[in-house]
Simulated assay, not measured.
Amino acid sequence: MLVDSHCHLDFPDFAEELDEVVERARKAGVARMVTICTKITEFERVRGIAERYDDIYCTVGIHPHEADSQPETDAARLVAAAQHPKVVGIGESGLDYFYEHSGRLAQQRSFRAHIKAARQTGLPLVVHTRDADADTVAILREEHAEGVFPGLIHCFSSSRELAEKSIELGLYISLSGIVTFKKAVELQETVRALPLDRLLVETDSPYLAPIPHRGKRNEPAFVAHTAKMVAELKGISMAEVEKATTENFARLFKKVEMPSAQAA
């Protein structure tokens, strides 16, 4: 049994065949999927997908790319939206200094609002960070000092140092198809060193399809390839990775109703 902890099923890439995409995921052993909100103005559409399928849940939040273009959103609005039974996380939010589609101050304000909402709800914060390790860690530490909150670094592709500092703060690390790429040697070495009880797997679909599907549209069924690579890197069986990452997911996303065999 696998879980895709981060996908974007509301994106246009899936509009014409969402039922088929979900069915392929089920056949690949993916028991739960979390479709991630990137724009607060489109939250209802994201939530609608979670309402449509028993095995799909969602988050509420604003991607750092959208911090300037979306209505400035405080923690109270996020907390209110998170009362819905299918909303199981806050985000994705964070910092992206690679593209800087939004100003850094706007990203930071939005990030702190999401952290506050995660603290108030107890729901995990889904963190996006790219080329912003120092500020990401600084904000996480500052906010952690104000009160603990659960969370994960999604689509992890940064330094081992960021991973270890995040784990010290109680966060989990979620791995995407990037870990299967031949040039991702540093990331693969980091994964070997990280504790298995802090790892999740995801697709970030429709992006970042793993080998052997690289260059194609990604989808939740392909999370199995990422899990297989983690098993190879750790020198353990695929079954062990499936069990560990699913149990980790259940511990973090406590609001998700897991199949009885994996309830935690």
Rank of each mutant, 00 (worst) to 15 (best):
4 D>E: 02
5 S>P: 01
5 S>C: 04
7 C>L: 04
18 L>G: 10
18 L>E: 10
27 K>C: 09
33 M>T: 07
34 V>E: 08
36 I>T: 14
38 T>Y: 07
42 E>Q: 15
46 V>A: 14
48 G>C: 09
53 Y>D: 10
56 I>F: 13
62 I>Y: 00
65 H>E: 01
65 H>G: 02
73 T>K: 00
75 A>D: 09
78 L>C: 01
80 A>W: 01
81 A>D: 02
86 K>P: 05
86 K>M: 08
86 K>H: 03
86 K>A: 10
88 V>C: 09
96 D>H: 09
113 A>N: 08
118 A>I: 05
118 A>S: 15
120 Q>C: 08
121 T>R: 09
123 L>G: 09
124 P>F: 07
128 H>V: 14
129 T>S: 15
132 A>P: 12
137 V>T: 13
145 A>V: 02
148 V>E: 09
151 G>Q: 10
153 I>A: 11
158 S>I: 00
158 S>L: 00
160 R>N: 08
160 R>W: 04
161 E>N: 10
163 A>H: 09
163 A>L: 11
171 L>N: 12
173 I>L: 07
178 I>N: 09
181 F>I: 08
183 K>V: 04
183 K>M: 08
195 P>G: 03
196 L>E: 01
201 V>T: 08
204 D>G: 11
206 P>I: 02
216 K>N: 08
217 R>K: 01
220 P>C: 01
221 A>W: 02
225 H>D: 13
229 M>S: 09
231 A>Q: 10
238 M>S: 08
238 M>I: 06
240 E>M: 01
244 A>L: 02
244 A>P: 05
245 T>M: 02
245 T>C: 02
248 N>S: 10
253 F>D: 15
254 K>D: 13
258 M>L: 15
258 M>Y: 12
259 P>V: 07
264 A>K: 11
